[in-house]
């Protein structure tokens, strides 16, 4: 499979006057291939949304590179964006559609980008599992799940080669979550596009992703095939993340606790970023950062 999106040693910094510079993304590398679904998971504040926004040019890279189909991604300025092959579905279903415009008109914007004269907005609504006649309605008539489907329809109308979902399901009802996630996967895969799916919910990512990337404090600490990571997580952080998910098995087992808080990204710990919370911490972890993959941990140093 050819490389669709290539992120190489990306650094994104947030600057606020009078505050220390925050490295939200501190040297992350990731690849998404055509037709592949990559799930990016991590706790809030780990930089996964910043990374996603950098991919579409909403955040500026301080260093490192992002390239889409071999072309470097430029920050979104005032000029018209020509790179419409990457589309994004955002988190908040109540902010992702223009409240003043009919749903059909908003989907038509996407069709126009793709130069698609044969499909109608109603066709796309059908593809995301909504009735065709919704096209003439306004967003406020819909539930969160329906809005998110409409946002997906609009993004897909532009025929993207890469679809990015920035926590697209975290604001939805539990039952709608896996439906919308599965829908996104199916539509992306069937159109041959890649999907970068960002979520803090590992159980949903597991359901739809071919590969999982785990992010901690601005770095990707583990990448691997979903089934492998799920069955045998190698990075201690991934282990903690999986161990913390309570299982609905009715057994009354309290999930394992990961001690401590996520450190301040403005002042990350020396050496491995996870070492203050790591149950398996060694001497080397305190001094040297593991700068290798696919598992950035001194226990799994590639030989």
């Amino acid at each position: 499979m050819s490389s669709l999106l290539k992120i190489d040693d990306l650094v994104v910094e947030h600057r606020t006057p009078g505050r220390p510079v925050v490295r939200a993304v501190a040297g992350a590398s990731l690849e998404v291939r055509a037709g592949e679904v990559v799930g990016l998971v991590g706790e809030s504040g780990c930089g996964k949304s910043t990374l996603a926004r950098a991919v579409v040019g909403l955040n500026r890279a301080a260093s490192g590179s992002i390239s889409f189909e071999g072309t470097p991604v430029t920050p979104l300025g005032l000029r018209r964006r020509t790179m419409t092959g990457v589309q994004m579905v955002f988190q908040d279903p109540y902010a992702s559609l223009n409240p003043r415009r009919r749903v059909g008109d908003q989907i038509a914007d996407g069709l126009r980008v793709a130069g698609d004269a044969t499909s109608s907005p109603a066709d796309l609504l059908e593809r995301v599992g909504l009735p065709r006649e919704f096209a003439s309605r306004h967003p406020h008539e819909f539930s969160g799940g329906q809005r998110q489907r409409i946002a997906i329809a609009r993004a897909l109308a532009a025929r993207p080669r890469l679809l990015i979902g920035d926590e697209p399901i975290s604001a939805l009802d539990a039952s709608a979550q896996s439906q919308v996630a599965t829908l996104m996967r199916d539509l992306a895969v069937s159109s041959g596009a890649g999907l970068l799916f960002i979520s803090h919910d590992l159980s949903v990512v597991r359901l739809i992703a071919d590969r999982i990337a785990v992010m901690y404090l601005g770095r990707i600490v583990e990448v691997g095939d979903t089934a492998e990571v799920w069955a045998e997580p190698r990075h201690p952080y991934t282990q903690a993340l999986l161990g913390a998910i309570p299982k609905p098995d009715g057994m009354g087992v309290l999930p394992a606790e990961l001690p401590g808080d996520v450190p301040d990204p403005a002042d990350p710990p020396q050496g491995c970023r996870f070492h203050p919370r790591c149950p398996l911490v060694m001497d080397v972890c305190r001094v040297k950062e593991p700068e290798f993959g696919p598992v950035a941990c001194w226990l799994h140093e590639p030989s």
């Binding site: 979104l76 018209r80 994004m88 223009n98 908003q106």
Partner: peptide, 24 residues
């Protein structure tokens, strides 16, 4: 987010202002 979505769909700054921002 809908304004950003519009920009990602290739809206020019003026079109974005006219269609997505001002009516709201």
């Amino acid at each position: 987010e809908f304004v950003l979505s519009g920009r990602l769909l290739g809206f020019s700054a003026w079109r974005s202002l006219r269609v997505d921002v001002l009516p709201n």
